[in-house]
Design a protein around this nucleic acid. Sequence first.
DNA 1: TAGATATCCTACCGATGAGTAAGATATCAA
DNA 2: TTGATATCTTACTCATCGGTAGGATATCTA
Lengths: 230, 230
Amino acid sequence: MPKQSAALGPHRRLFADRRRNPDGKRVAVLHTAVRMFLERSYGRTSMNDVALQLNITKPALYHYFRNKEEILVEIYRLGTDLIDEMLDSIEADEKPGLDKVADFIAGYIRIITGDFGRAVIRLDDGELSTAGRRLVRGRKREIDHRVRGLIEGGMKDGSIASCDAKIASFILVGSIHGMASWYEPTGPMKLTAITAQYVGILTAGLANGSMGELVEPGSVLLKSAALMQG
Amino acid sequence: MPKQSAALGPHRRLFADRRRNPDGKRVAVLHTAVRMFLERSYGRTSMNDVALQLNITKPALYHYFRNKEEILVEIYRLGTDLIDEMLDSIEADEKPGLDKVADFIAGYIRIITGDFGRAVIRLDDGELSTAGRRLVRGRKREIDHRVRGLIEGGMKDGSIASCDAKIASFILVGSIHGMASWYEPTGPMKLTAITAQYVGILTAGLANGSMGELVEPGSVLLKSAALMQG
DNA sequence: TAGATATCCTACCGATGAGTAAGATATCAA
DNA sequence: TTGATATCTTACTCATCGGTAGGATATCTA
């Protein structure tokens, strides 16, 4: 963990003195918490851990948040807000569905490589209470529906090949979600290069005309019907 | 949880009497545990929970496993074994790389819709000790490399368009991993139909010739360069 | 400068959960 | 039948963690 102590510095410094700054300190807690939750998971990060990272004690955290869950819910809210705004902007555009999908891929990658976007994907909403889980999953479901809408729009205007929009959107977001796990900002690949690959492969898969000569899954699929495991 | 008590019945019944059957009871524990880990996560499933589900008490579990982690590692081992065997069979085939990829998609979906396959994807290996984590992540990495090999093979024989094999394999497995989260065996969609969609879209995306007229990510990508978040 | 209050701390509670000690009882092989 | 042992239980230890009680101290405003 000392690896990222440099990045945490600014937030830590906010708590160096007792200057009054409730809003600023609240978001500082959020930035530190989301980093730690992503690194060690929500369940394995104690309130004490977060407090120590900020150079305060655990009860001080409860001055800014009612409980641990409130921190997590707030993180989800910030992350889903980013995604919502991007979808707003894409839906407002006037262009073929396939182009909107291309924009979505690029925008989604941009968001998901940031802390709060990545949190929406990687953190386990099963840790939430029933109420919190309902809220978060509702927002996720809404996002899914909007992505599906993009694909359906493309099928209507003919830029996207006829397919099951639900499955296609799952493939789309699923492949990008994977990035949230393996992408490292300090890694060797430039983000723009990665994005170009994603846009290329995924739009090629959806584009009308490209699914002409379908590859049939052969032996393994047949085997799968026979060996279907209980 | 009473929802799946029917499926757990057989394993529960194994522990009804004290007949000696160490191996059978061991796998019964594994089957019950993987189900519960998938439903409630490893961290939120206590040894007591698992024991109760089997109609025994917690210490009895320690007769079959040294500790909780040993159960999880064993689950990972069984799951990765399934994937390894499938890759063995595909690599042994003599067919174009794109066809192998199609077979892989179908085979991977089949495995991932089963309990142990899904566990490899969904369970958090961050819960493991350093030693266990090294072991599990090593096996996962090996699988990744083999998938990448399939794609590289296809690029060599010309059936797959030139692209970054690393990214392409991440897109491939990432999109299927998403299934491990949303797929429900009792859901409305037949597995063969879902598989066909995956094979269709993904092989179309990789196939040589389909990436001719690339869709350029437009406004959003440009915005992303400017708004890059810290 | 003085009161209001924001900020933060020490010390604690109660719950949970992994793992163990030590012994009771059933099963099976000889 | 009997001894070895596999199986399982009750009753515990120890550590961690979310959250709180109650008070101390610094900051800002009037």
